[in-house]
């Protein structure tokens, strides 16, 4: 594997949009317009780590209100109840809806936590020299993180659908809670964090 050359070491970079390989002018940090598609060519995404850190920390901060505050308020025949993400899952379990409990638990709790943990892990380890096998695992981890992120929107959509449908005056109403807002922000911020991270940085520290 030692005969593999990175584009960066040859002063080349690949366009992020159309994959055209472009020769970078010196110094290699200068941004360049792609001759084929007109997009910007970066050898590495600019300020990738700083941006990912900032977005990740912001999403971690918002993860607290997203779980503490209710995401949904339900009135049923005059009786009010409000649910957080976790109490919603517990409610499904109590009612015996194992499948729904599993879907919501995975999309709203496992996926966001997994994303935040794996980005944190990648950010901490990106500067450490690693062997090819390890770098490959980290790249795979990044790929999964980027792929599953959008599925945490399930809860936000469910709250929207229930809010739109369950407006039956005195019988039953559903209102979105402030936690839903924070949770939506967590989803967007973690997705932006994953997009800002440049997986090519993982390979820059590879041990030969």
């Amino acid at each position: 594997m030692t005969d593999l050359l990175r584009a960066k070491s040859l002063g080349l970079a690949s366009c992020g949009v159309c994959r055209q390989v472009v020769r970078l002018s010196l110094p290699s940090t200068v941004q360049l317009e792609c001759p084929r598609c007109g997009g910007r060519v970066h050898s590495r995404l600019s300020h990738s780590l700083a941006r990912t850190w900032a977005l990740l920390i912001a999403s971690m901060v918002l993860y607290v209100p997203a779980n503490v505050y209710p995401v949904m308020k339900n009135t049923y025949l005059g009786a009010e109840s409000s649910n957080t993400i976790l109490s919603g899952v517990v409610l499904f379990l109590k009612e015996g809806d194992w499948l729904l409990a599993f879907v919501i638990f995975t999309a709203s709790i496992v996926v966001p936590l997994l994303k935040m943990c794996s980005l944190l892990y990648l950010l901490i380890n990106v500067h450490k020299p690693s062997v090819a096998r390890r770098a490959r695992q980290q790249t795979a981890l990044y790929r999964v993180t980027e792929l599953v992120g959008r599925w945490s929107m399930v809860d936000v959509f469910v709250i929207g659908i229930l809010t739109a449908l369950v407006q039956m005056g005195a019988i039953s109403t559903v209102e979105p809670g402030i936690g839903a807002m924070a949770f939506g922000a967590v989803v967007v911020l973690t997705m932006l964090a994953a997009i800002s991270f440049d997986p090519r940085l993982i390979w820059d520290q590879e041990k030969q």
């Binding site: 584009a7 080349l12 994959r19 390989v21 770098a135 790249t139 997986p199 090519r200």
Partner: peptide, 13 residues
């Protein structure tokens, strides 16, 4: 044609 991997930046024909 020449391509560089978007994940690991390896240049290859």
């Amino acid at each position: 044609m020449l391509m560089a991997c978007r994940e690991c930046d390896v240049l290859q024909r």
